Computed example of a mutant assay.
Amino acid sequence: MADPIRIPDDLKPVDGRFGSGPSKVRPEGVAALSRVATTFMGTSHRQRTVKDQVARLRAGIAQFFSAPDGYEVIISNGGTSAFWETAAFGLIRDKAQFAEFGEFGAKFAKAVRDAPFLAEPTVHKAPAGSAAYLTAEAGVDTYASVQNETSTGVAVPVQRVAGADPGALVLTDATSGGGSIDVDLTQTDVYYLAPQKAFGSDGGLWIALMSPAAIARAHEIKESGRYIPQFLDLVTAVEQSRLEQTYNTPALATVFLAAEQVDWMNAQGGLGWAAKRSAESAAAIYGWADRSEVASPFVTDPALRSHAVATIDFADSVDAAQLAKVLRANGIVDTEPYRKLGRNQLRIALYPTVDPADVEALTRCIDYVIHKS
Rank of each mutant, 00 (worst) to 15 (best):
D3R: 04
V14W: 07
G19P: 08
R26P: 03
R26D: 14
S34H: 03
R35T: 13
A37V: 09
R56T: 01
A59N: 10
I61K: 00
Q63C: 02
G70A: 07
E72W: 08
I75P: 07
G78A: 01
A88D: 14
L91W: 12
K95I: 10
A96S: 14
A99H: 09
E100V: 15
E100F: 06
E100D: 14
A115Y: 04
A126D: 05
A128M: 04
E137M: 12
A138D: 14
T142W: 02
Y143H: 10
T150E: 15
T152H: 00
V154L: 01
A155Y: 00
D165G: 02
T172R: 10
G179M: 06
T188W: 05
V190F: 05
Y191E: 09
P195Y: 06
S201D: 06
W206H: 14
I207G: 02
P212S: 11
F231W: 07
F231A: 13
L234H: 13
E244S: 15
Q245L: 09
T246A: 07
P250R: 05
A267V: 06
W273S: 03
Y286I: 05
V309G: 00
A321V: 10
V326G: 05
L327S: 08
A329C: 04
A329R: 13
E336L: 10
E336G: 12
K340T: 15
Q345D: 13
A361E: 06
A361C: 02
C365G: 12
H371S: 11
